[in-house]
Simulated scan of single mutants.
Amino acid sequence: MLRRTSEREVSDFAMHHSNAMTRVCVGGLGVEIPEASISNEELVESFNSWIDAENPAREARGLPPLAKSDAAFIEHASGIRRRHIYEREGILDPKRMAPVIPARGDDDLSVMAEFGAAAAQKALDHAGVAARDVDLVICASAHHQRPYPAIAIEIQKALGTGGAGFDMGLGCSSALAGLHVATNLVKAGAHRRVLVVTPELITAHLNFRDRQTHFIFGDASVAVLIEALGANEERPGRFEIVDTRSWTQFSNNIRTNFGFMSRLAQDDPSYLAMEGNLIKQNGNKVFKDVTVAGHKFIVDFLAEHGHTPETMRRFWLHQANARMNAMILKLAFGGEVGHDRAPMVLDRLGNTAAAGAIIALKENHEDMKPGEHGLLCAFGAGYSIGGALMRMM
């Protein structure tokens, strides 16, 4: 049943936020995962078929041969076994190696907005809140379909929410950056309910002919409804957000150059070559840098609130690399940490960029007891890290 904002709630909210910072909670969570999926074995077969066709041409030009991919190595290096994708057609064709997603008219709902709205509606249903009672939509995603009109405004229209909407991006930390902004806007009294939507259509931006990255990513869409709490209000089964934090440090080790400037460096600016403009990363360097930075961020953030890793019932970490998460937690705890303490969804979904940590949260929180704490944390391009310390009510 949908909850309508009552006059009493509005009055209490106005009186409270005029005098002090408002308490904030996660009112609802929504996850939309596409049905289609691709296994490591299927992806490797396609990649290696392309290599077999490409290497003779490279040899004729005097270039070194490209190395083949391997399904067992992918699982060992990343923990990924398969990934769900928005559109399977075209990805496994060695002559194309990109999803077939037809263009839509300007007056039709865009693919990204449709994907985001599906997760957003689930978050509203989970919260029991009507769309009309949301006063801000933030589309916080690592990959945006276009610069403008903002995808958030299109989602706002599709759902029928009030207020405003805007887009923001911070690589794989986008959802946490969105939560950071939303939480503090509600705490300050600027908004009462903010919907943070993170639709990640990463396979549309992925170079499936790049051995470093062709296996990493999958598609998913998530949404989180951030709501104001009364001064003494408790909502059993929901999380109060104790605090959020964001950290950045410039690095080129994860980068995309796709954008309007790319075509201007080419002989024919009417044609945009994709080579060098899609996702690329220095995997070994990223692993080392982010492991150190992620560990420090977690320990320091928790210490600010009198916590240690041991006082956290659960960690919902960015789902990029199982070995990296294990190393960060081993540094924090001084030993191995299992799925119950730090759940993983990476093995079956791949790296869903900014959506991954939210999926881990949605699937692994209902067993927590009142008063227990958890840390939601993501890290990615920038470098960037975002965290949210939460208490089960």
Results as ranks from 00 to 15, higher is better:
residue 47 F to H: 08
residue 115 F to A: 03
residue 167 D to P: 03
residue 342 A to E: 10
residue 338 G to Q: 09
residue 223 A to H: 01
residue 201 L to N: 07
residue 267 D to Y: 03
residue 273 A to G: 15
residue 191 H to T: 08
residue 126 H to S: 11
residue 175 A to K: 00
residue 239 F to I: 00
residue 115 F to H: 01
residue 249 Q to Y: 13
residue 197 V to A: 05
residue 179 L to C: 10
residue 194 V to N: 01
residue 110 S to D: 12
residue 97 M to E: 02
residue 141 S to L: 01
residue 41 E to S: 14
residue 248 T to H: 01
residue 144 H to G: 15
residue 362 K to R: 11
residue 67 A to G: 09
residue 150 A to P: 11
residue 326 A to W: 10
residue 346 L to M: 09
residue 358 I to C: 04
residue 179 L to F: 11
residue 184 N to A: 11
residue 2 L to A: 08
residue 344 M to A: 11
residue 373 H to F: 02
residue 41 E to I: 01
residue 128 G to Y: 11
residue 316 W to D: 10
residue 15 M to R: 15
residue 128 G to A: 05
residue 101 I to M: 12
residue 103 A to I: 03
residue 375 L to F: 05
residue 76 H to R: 14
residue 242 V to R: 02
residue 370 P to F: 06
residue 352 T to S: 08
residue 191 H to W: 05
residue 106 D to F: 09
residue 109 L to D: 12
residue 43 L to A: 13
residue 286 V to Y: 14
residue 175 A to E: 00
residue 118 A to V: 02
residue 176 L to M: 13
residue 37 S to K: 08
residue 213 T to L: 01
residue 85 I to Q: 00
residue 35 E to N: 06
residue 300 D to Y: 04
residue 96 R to G: 01
residue 211 R to C: 13
residue 203 T to K: 02
residue 393 M to H: 01
residue 89 E to N: 13
residue 21 M to T: 06
residue 192 R to N: 13
residue 99 P to N: 15
residue 355 A to N: 10
residue 39 S to R: 14
residue 372 E to F: 00
residue 297 F to G: 06
residue 313 R to V: 04
residue 343 P to R: 02
residue 333 F to T: 09
residue 199 P to D: 04
residue 211 R to Q: 08
residue 276 G to Y: 02
residue 212 Q to E: 15
residue 74 I to T: 14
residue 92 L to P: 07
residue 206 L to R: 00
residue 366 E to P: 07
residue 177 A to F: 06
residue 272 L to A: 15
residue 216 I to C: 09
residue 130 A to T: 10
residue 85 I to H: 07
residue 378 A to K: 03
residue 84 H to M: 04
residue 200 E to D: 11
residue 184 N to T: 12
